[in-house]
């Protein structure tokens, strides 16, 4: 305990507090905490580029999917179809306001904001430019938002809704349902490329350069 190594050469496990000498693993490999198994660093070839490409796809799909209908209904000659935009604007009663606001927030706005923040942070790094203003805050918020982006849960919700009123009326999936299903997959793939340690280090190096 006499001479400490320089803290900047160390990495601490956020889950169990074990400390290691930080060493970038070879591309495609991961550094895992020996004690608790938490993945500390996971490198992938061209991770930034993949995340950027997938994020642009997410931004386009989320915006488009919000305006296309995801379900349509048919009963006794009457029909209706809804997009998430309709869900957001179909306020009728007090309870519904809060339920639809939180739905649109978790399905559209949070994923949209999180993806935009990731592009804002990773874009300049990939282009070899200095980070944009408040890039660190942007990345921290993007990481905080992760559990609140619920695109994939919504796809299952559509399927349940379809079955739930099948005795009442005939329901059909619309274009936006398939977009959301594709989105769920893209978001999961993009997150697998995202290594927070690598991005924090890149931000730090760019600032010190």
């Amino acid at each position: 305990m006499t001479n400490h190594p320089d803290p900047s050469t160390l990495i601490g496990c956020p889950s169990c507090d074990a400390v290691y000498l930080a060493r970038m693993p070879a591309p495609g490999e991961r550094a895992v905490c020996e004690r608790c198994g938490t993945v500390l660093i996971s490198t992938r070839e061209n991770a930034g580029l993949h995340i950027l490409a997938l994020s642009v796809a997410v931004l386009i799909l989320v915006i488009a999917a919000s305006f296309f209908p995801f379900l349509s209904i048919n009963a006794a000659g009457m029909a209706n179809r809804v997009s998430l935009w309709d869900v957001a604007t179909s306020f009728r009663s007090g309870v519904l306001v809060l339920v639809s606001v939180s739905t649109v927030l978790l399905i559209v706005l949070v994923p949209l904001i999180r993806t935009a923040l990731l592009v804002y942070v990773i874009g300049p790094i990939e282009l070899g430019r200095p980070p944009l203003r408040h890039a660190r805050d942007a990345f921290r918020i993007a990481q905080e938002l992760k559990p609140w982006a619920m695109t994939e849960v919504f796809s299952i919700g559509c399927a349940v809704a379809l079955v739930k009123v099948s005795s009442l009326a005939h329901l059909e999936f619309g274009a936006a349902f398939w977009m959301f299903t594709a989105l769920s997959v893209i978001v999961i793939v993009a997150d697998r490329y995202l290594c927070s340690w690598s991005i924090w280090r890149a931000l730090e190096e760019a600032d010190n350069a």
């Binding site: 379900l71 009457m78 209706n80 869900v87 739905t103 619920m150 919504f154 919700g157 559509c158 349940v160």
Partner: peptide
């Protein structure tokens, strides 16, 4: 997060089933 399914179903159906 998966517990939110039922809430989303309610939001979807309340907007959709208005015949």
């Amino acid at each position: 997060r998966w517990s939110m399914i039922d809430v989303f179903v309610v939001a979807i159906l309340s907007a959709l089933v208005q015949l």
